[in-house]
Design a protein around this nucleic acid. Structure first.
Length: 220
DNA sequence: AATTTTCCCAACCGCCAGGGG
DNA sequence: GCCCCTGGCGGTTGGGAAAAT
């Protein structure tokens, strides 16, 4: 039996108060994102480290984008979900300012309905096993690659006929995605087209590379 | 206006992977 | 290779708000 990450009886649970938020913000502003386990005590919070991390990443981080999703963000999520399945962190990595939790909630509460309304089964329009194998092969072939330094380099797909087949039921998709470094959520404000000079770093060059919003229009 | 139902989303939970000793 | 610790991920839940009755 795995021991709990912290003593739940001594900790607050549920919604965060403004005071708790402020303590967390103040501490991280001063010390950065150090050890989450020791952070609560150091910051004077009666929370477990995991809870602090989640609160910071999903809500308090200054670069978190709140508010309604744009049409092109919808398109991108639908497209990426078709390719990647429920890999929310990868999908969120393509949406600057959006978190995996937010994307997941948005998918479950809005996009599923939207797809159903379009006559698409949201659970069946994801990547086939063939594509998953392609991804896995790519990942393992890159094992040991030097220094992607915590960024989640991930393959999407470059105009594969296969990808066309994978998009079962998603009409009029522009599948002209390519391989790139994901947006690094740990570095506020950093967009994909700013990332390390890397041959794979051309993800969004098809789009206006000067744009602050690297999402793609997916429906033609 | 009061009550019930539905929906949304912040937060929690459990599992897994990677790193260090 | 094994164990422990930590961070990260995806699935699920519960409370509150909004909508329906």
């Amino acid at each position: 039996m795995r021991s709990p990450c912290c003593d739940k009886q001594e900790n607050n649970r549920g919604a965060w108060s403004k005071e708790e938020d402020q303590k967390l913000i103040d501490y991280i502003t001063l010390h950065g994102e150090v050890s989450w386990r020791s952070l609560p005590k150091a910051a004077g919070l009666l929370r477990c480290g995991k809870s602090c991390r989640l609160r910071w990443i999903n809500y308090l981080r200054p670069d978190v984008k709140r508010g309604n999703f744009q049409e092109d963000e919808d398109d991108l999520i639908i497209k990426l979900h078709a390719l990647l399945g429920n890999r929310w962190s990868l999908i969120a990595g393509r949406l600057p300012g959006r978190t995996d939790n937010e994307v997941k909630n948005y998918w479950n509460s809005h996009l599923r309905k939207k797809l159903r309304g379009m006559g698409i089964d949201p659970d069946r329009q994801r990547a086939t096993s063939a594509l998953a194998r392609r991804r896995t092969a790519w990942e393992s072939s890159n094992d040991g690659d030097d220094d992607t330094a915590g960024s989640t380099a991930d393959v999407v797909v470059t105009n594969y006929e296969e990808a066309d087949r994978c998009s079962n039921g998603v009409p009029d998709l522009n599948l002209d995605l390519t391989i790139s470094m994901a947006w690094d959520q740990t570095r506020p404000g950093r967009m994909p087209d700013e990332s390390i000079g890397n041959s794979t770093d051309q993800a969004l060059d098809h789009e206006d590379s000067t744009s602050a919003n690297p999402t793609l229009l997916l429906f033609r």
